[in-house]
Design a protein around this nucleic acid. Sequence first.
DNA 1: TAGATTGTTAATCGATTAACAATC
DNA 2: TAGATTGTTAATCGATTAACAATC
Lengths: 212, 212
Amino acid sequence: MNDKSKKVPEVVIKRLPRYYRYLGELLKQDIKRISSNALSEKMNVTASQIRQDFNYFGGFGQQGYGYNVEHLYGEIGDILGLHDDDTFIIVGAGNLGRALANHDTFEKRGFRLVGIFDNDKNIIGTKINGIEISDADNIEDFLKHNRVDIAILTVPREAVMETAERLTGCGVKGLMNFSYTELDFDRDVAVENVHLSDSLMTLSYKIKSNKN
Amino acid sequence: MNDKSKKVPEVVIKRLPRYYRYLGELLKQDIKRISSNALSEKMNVTASQIRQDFNYFGGFGQQGYGYNVEHLYGEIGDILGLHDDDTFIIVGAGNLGRALANHDTFEKRGFRLVGIFDNDKNIIGTKINGIEISDADNIEDFLKHNRVDIAILTVPREAVMETAERLTGCGVKGLMNFSYTELDFDRDVAVENVHLSDSLMTLSYKIKSNKN
DNA sequence: TAGATTGTTAATCGATTAACAATC
DNA sequence: TAGATTGTTAATCGATTAACAATC
């Protein structure tokens, strides 16, 4: 919105979902207001950082009072674009793809699954979570007739690059890549690489260094 | 190893798996040596950062030559503890748990799945990927008789905290948490929180800001 | 040896924390 | 009003980049 202000650092953006999570929790507990200080203790960060982070997007609080939890929750949801009815498809209906299709948290955050694709003739036509698996050959056709904002890629590594290009060529603006390869588009395509084995390796490192 | 040297920053540790991935790729292509400069172009980071990162762990390169890919790959694997025969269990055999049990990348990186647990009587005794699902009530007993380094938690959010405490109480040193809640142990327990919906939200934000 | 490239120190940049005036 | 707490500027800290002497 305030587009002339300085660019929001990546680290701040990455923290937004975490704030959103904690605020959702407070909301559930029927807590109406919270100060940056109280929140900082819960989240194990500094109050200063919280105030700085929020102020990239404008003042959501009130001096002497703090932040209204419900309002702040809504605002951060807005900033994250959770109220935009974003749609997504899953390409690759293997174990991970199937699990994600059943992952109801995505829907709870406002993302709507509108298609699942695979190239295995044996599973095309079967349903996951009420959605029929379509032939991956028909992706372009599907994208011509349906607005799709995000594609989750759970295809084999060899197929990622080609799939990604087909999708972005048809207007998909965001990719969530689960394959071992790293995707990188510098154009107008947003990419999140989710490397599950990276997390396991990091964990392994930490365990090692914990017993130094 | 060089334990008196300064602590390695978290950002550097998080980059190690990425180096490992790119080096593995080079190895596959039968590339014997690489300079920090050539690697920097491939990875889209600065050569300076690469050299700095590696030097937290000692000099792996040679002036005038660069880095021996195979050697460096091995060293980073060592640093990450991939050659330690680390074992892991999966607690929670829902969609995600099952997908991860079948996720062969973990095994490829040197981690060995030794148990799967759930509390649903209907699936206890059935097998995933050759491993029988055990009753979650028997976790403590299992841990008494088997060394388990890491536990992957794919249990419902309400059960996470209790499960985590049972596991760490029995000596598990690392937790990979997939539930929406945030786990945090300050003791000797390493934790990686993997929030899939966070990535989707970040993606949503980026898409929004791309069309500013 | 000359050229290349590392390891490492120094300079810069950016993010976090501290401080405090503004204000509810 | 007095007290609390934000929004925001200034100070600090840490990470990234640049530079270059060491050396293969």
